[in-house]
Design a protein around this nucleic acid. Structure first.
Length: 221
DNA sequence: CTCCGGCTAG
DNA sequence: CTAGCTGGAG
């Protein structure tokens, strides 16, 4: 079931090679900046930080708040995100960086990340999977929307961890698999399973409850 | 539940 | 012109 969805997406879109970043720190910065924000805007912000050589924990804690806010402005919510980046950078420094933190068991690390102001479950799991490279499945609004429409879950309001565990239980605990799957879901939901769905040419249309119910507005059916 | 926000595809 | 964006805190 879950495996079939992955296979179809993989065959259709090919490998996504996520997360698009040069360093682990950049992955984490991106995961904070992209909270409820279009990635193109995040790219602008990251580009600004790179240009100023600010993509390191030390640089982030040192740069004046006002300056940081200005640089990440394109990513929106810049006041809170500037604070969140500072808090995360300080956390890394205080805890021995990725090397030391990576020694922790997955769920210990997750707890530490969740205790940080500005790091919720999706952000924490994105960091764990794509920066710390430990096997956890990242759930997001796209995942809930897709699985709801496919008929795998009864509501898009399903609890984050309930859905995460549901997916994890139905697949092998494989970092590469989880990485590609989440990336493919994002890709697919941007191209087809949008809020206003574009079902034409959808690689998952076979067996999709949403499509079968004609909920796709009957515009093309 | 509301606020936080710049940016752009359509 | 605005819907919608890989959320999280209070």
């Amino acid at each position: 079931m879950m495996r079939t969805v992955f296979d179809r997406l993989f065959r259709f879109f090919g490998p996504q090679y996520w997360w698009p970043a040069e360093t682990k720190f950049e992955v984490c910065v991106g995961s904070i900046l992209t909270q409820n924000t279009a990635w193109t805007n995040v790219e602008r912000a990251i580009h600004n930080l790179k240009k100023e050589n600010l993509l390191s924990p030390y640089a982030i804690v040192q740069v004046p708040d006002e300056r940081l806010r200005e640089l990440i402005r394109p990513a929106g919510f810049f006041n809170q995100k500037a604070e969140r980046l500072k808090i995360f950078a300080k956390f890394l420094i205080d805890n021995g960086g990725f090397e030391k933190l990576s020694l922790l068991p997955l769920y210990s690390l997750r707890e530490k990340l969740l205790n940080l102001k500005g790091v919720g479950r999706e952000t924490a799991d994105s960091m764990i999977l794509y920066a710390f490279e430990k096997p956890i499945f990242v759930v997001d609004a796209y995942t809930k929307r897709l699985f709801y429409r496919m008929g795998f879950i009864d509501s898009e309001k399903i609890d984050y961890d309930v859905l995460r565990e549901k997916v994890e239980r139905s697949l092998p605990k494989d970092i590469e698999l989880f990485s590609e799957f989440h990336a493919l879901i994002v890709k697919h939901c941007k191209e087809f399973c949008r809020k206003k769905p574009l079902c034409e040419g959808c690689p998952l249309i076979d067996g999709c409850k949403f499509w079968r119910n004609g909920a796709a507005q009957g515009s093309h059916r």
